[in-house]
Design a protein around this nucleic acid. Sequence first.
DNA 1: GGTTAGAGTTTACATCTGTAAACGTAAAGT
DNA 2: ACTTTACGTTTACAGATGTAAACTCTAACC
Lengths: 149, 149
Amino acid sequence: MAITENTEITEAITDAEWAVMRIVWTLGEADSHTIIDLVSQQHDWKAATIKTLIGRLVKKGALATTKNGRQFIYTPLIPEQAAMDTALTSQLDQMCAMCRGQAFVNAIDQTELSQTDIQELITHLQEKLTTAPTTITCDCLPEGYEGSC
Amino acid sequence: MAITENTEITEAITDAEWAVMRIVWTLGEADSHTIIDLVSQQHDWKAATIKTLIGRLVKKGALATTKNGRQFIYTPLIPEQAAMDTALTSQLDQMCAMCRGQAFVNAIDQTELSQTDIQELITHLQEKLTTAPTTITCDCLPEGYEGSC
DNA sequence: GGTTAGAGTTTACATCTGTAAACGTAAAGT
DNA sequence: ACTTTACGTTTACAGATGTAAACTCTAACC
């Protein structure tokens, strides 16, 4: 007797759907009017388009609905940070293991980070350094093949 | 008089196409037989499928072809690191600016990095720290709205 | 109580992706 | 020269995604 069926929270959120989720994550909950209003100010999408995105997010278990009079209140069923982690990690997982470090360097270079963020990253990295391997092997070729990019 | 038409190197590489690109990036160049052979060992795809992917990559300007007898030699037209950066950055760009730091922390936690990588990251971060803002504002809502996630 | 507006649902449709068979053609072997 | 191979191209097709109109109700207003 689960509250929500929660068959599998793990349906990937598409690029367009991210825009909707960000609104709901930030507000905590929102009705469709609010979502449509705010998303329209960021993207040149018709209300109908945003309705479709909301519907798909509900169907894929990313948003919960609570009846409120004639309309629904939408709330996130998956945490924002978890969605971000999943998105980043799946992207990284398909890249050469050996090159991921450099990818981080470049991504971090191009990202505005707060002093606190940076300090936390440094701390984590220093901790990670204590158990880090000397080298990471390129995993672009199948088992048994040599090569590195 | 460009060597290659290079209309726009910026066509995104899809998940399946990454598998092909990684082989070519690692080998520097490869004929289709080699690509099909190696990719088949990593993915349960038919040769025809891999041929399709190669064809699409050529069409979208990610791979160059050089005739060699009855077949082609394929070479990357976009650098691996650039593709990785683009993929990561576009992912990050659609996430809340305020949460990106934490996303990095989590992603780095789940990624194996070499001592050298980590040290380079720390150095970069220490450098970045000198000009970092105290806080990053949540940019999930449209201009003029308050809110943070 | 009848009308209406607006919320959610259905339907639509082109393009992109993943996956693959079929085909045309020229090189390679006999 | 003839056949076979196999490389690249064309075609196929279902499901995902972006984008949006049309439709169905029911709650709200007069």
